[in-house]
Design a protein around this nucleic acid. Sequence first.
DNA 1: GATGAATGAGCCTTCATTCAT
DNA 2: AATGAATGAAGGCTCATTCAT
Lengths: 196, 196, 196, 196
Amino acid sequence: MKQETVEQIFRAAVEIFAESGFERAKMDDIAQRAQVAKGTIYYHFKGKEELFVALMNSGMEKFTDVVRRATEAHQDPADQLRGLLRAKVTYLYHHGTFAKLLLSEVWGSKERQQAFRARIRDLVELIEGVLRRGGDSRFTSSRDRLHETAVAIFGAISVTVLQEIFRAEDRELLEGDRIEVMLDTLEPLICGALRD
Amino acid sequence: MKQETVEQIFRAAVEIFAESGFERAKMDDIAQRAQVAKGTIYYHFKGKEELFVALMNSGMEKFTDVVRRATEAHQDPADQLRGLLRAKVTYLYHHGTFAKLLLSEVWGSKERQQAFRARIRDLVELIEGVLRRGGDSRFTSSRDRLHETAVAIFGAISVTVLQEIFRAEDRELLEGDRIEVMLDTLEPLICGALRD
Amino acid sequence: MKQETVEQIFRAAVEIFAESGFERAKMDDIAQRAQVAKGTIYYHFKGKEELFVALMNSGMEKFTDVVRRATEAHQDPADQLRGLLRAKVTYLYHHGTFAKLLLSEVWGSKERQQAFRARIRDLVELIEGVLRRGGDSRFTSSRDRLHETAVAIFGAISVTVLQEIFRAEDRELLEGDRIEVMLDTLEPLICGALRD
Amino acid sequence: MKQETVEQIFRAAVEIFAESGFERAKMDDIAQRAQVAKGTIYYHFKGKEELFVALMNSGMEKFTDVVRRATEAHQDPADQLRGLLRAKVTYLYHHGTFAKLLLSEVWGSKERQQAFRARIRDLVELIEGVLRRGGDSRFTSSRDRLHETAVAIFGAISVTVLQEIFRAEDRELLEGDRIEVMLDTLEPLICGALRD
DNA sequence: GATGAATGAGCCTTCATTCAT
DNA sequence: AATGAATGAAGGCTCATTCAT
């Protein structure tokens, strides 16, 4: 069993889905990009939906892992938050194709999207955990709104990176130092959450 | 010329588009909900795309107006920011259908979506303006990252409200006081932007 | 609303379904034969299945009506049975396309086929009624097996006609007097049912 | 050369074909039920069609043999007819899966189906032979319609049994004495053919 | 202004068959 | 002998759009 084939399909699928969104993405295009016959996709995945879900789960898992590791590399909650921030921004900026999917295909009531949101919750909880540990060592008035705060931070980061990605696409270049600009922008905003 | 007919179509379209997203929304359904023949829609709009764009422009205009008025009702930048925040949160929470569209249909490279992003820029610039006025009165290191900060704030607010909307839908109720919770959560985060 | 279009589709569908059976029949072919766009079929019928069922119901209704009228034209049970026999044989022989469907698409457990069988039951009950009236006037040992007898008669007639139809197709001609041969063959067999 | 493998495929194929009919039957399902890889089927049979034909021939052969033996066990034509009747009814009732195929896959103009009909002709000729011998001993007006009569008898028996099978499936039980009921029903009908 | 029947390109999915191992 | 991954032609169904009335 060529694990390779599945890999090819996976890679092609991320690209096509990201370029066109779930609805407009054509199985034909995915097959073509993967250099595989259309039937081959259906040999490995039950259908478009399943392929997408598999993709998202795998993507979110990788993403969350990277962010989690960057977080756990530090002890101090403030450092953790900064590590998390940098990891998330960097990852999303360098996986623009995934970043677009992240914000465009989550919303909606279909199962697929609900499953997606469930995976995002893991990430939000990661943020929440850091905030909680940060808040323990000091007094925090928002102790009971940690979850909401984590969501807001998640949104701030995601939207900021996405907007930078579109900016870069318009100018047809990805500047490395834009990451630093985003970090400088987001850090004060977000780290305020530990001080309140 | 019945302006009424166009109104009916408009109202139906917002609902259908919000329920299903642009791609899944069917002209048939819009026609049915508007109690109009399908051909009638095409008599008034060039096509699905145009109908959607018209909708978005009108929606964004109303939305931006409300937020702008709430901002300009105050003098002090901090009050302005708080006013803007409350207005945006309240509006989005009460126009969940519009809120969903806002975050799900902006991303993508199609003209329609780019046009949409252009309208969002107005809103972001509104935020940016407040930040600028707030920063003028003090020294701010992020003076040159006002735009990025505004985007981040926009994202934080939008995602927070959207997540609350889904939460409410899961529990099948819209609690009024959730707005206060969101405000309490977002205010410290966002207003930090004035203090940095 | 052109009732005509539906008629065209109907006529084309009977032909195609009869030629190829339900499974092999292609919507494309039906559309082509009906000189209608494929979408038009779907505008009038929910799908292949529904089209087929509509067809069958309409076909069986017409068929049963003809047979019923031929039966009720007589008073004496024996005459009724002969009338029924002649009507059924003649109708099936002249509607070979329908006759084929009758025996090839009834068997199977799908809903469609069960619905079909339900319609056949009407016909069988018609036969059963004649047998009952015929049996009342004499003593009949098979009084309690009237239904089974009716089914057997139904089978004898249907299979006989169908075999003649294939015979005719092989020889590429439909001989009118074959009907008389079939009647002469079936009458003694079937009318025996009244005498037992 | 494992004859066993072919046996497994054969057994699985009968089941699947009977459950779904030729068209809906999937090679995948046959392979799965036979606990064999799909390729294996193609190693032993040229394709779906050939597999089915092999099946039908083998099935019809077995069936005809049973019926023939039951017929030849008697001397008197009337006894032969009764023996034939009992054998056919019993066999079909106990091989419901085969019985369904018998009536659903014969009709149609495809080679496969014509080949099938040729095999059925053997059976019909068996009946015809009995009738001829029966008629020899007496005077029979239907002497020249023996073939047609045999076909009618074939149809009466087959349809009756099939209808009983479906009845049994609906009630989810196979009653042994239903066979006697069918025999009691069919005997008078059929044996009349000898007396006319 | 409004209608709704008709259109047909487009897309997802199925499945018999092949073939390298 | 047997396998099962890969294939691709085929077919059912959708839906935005058109147009005669």
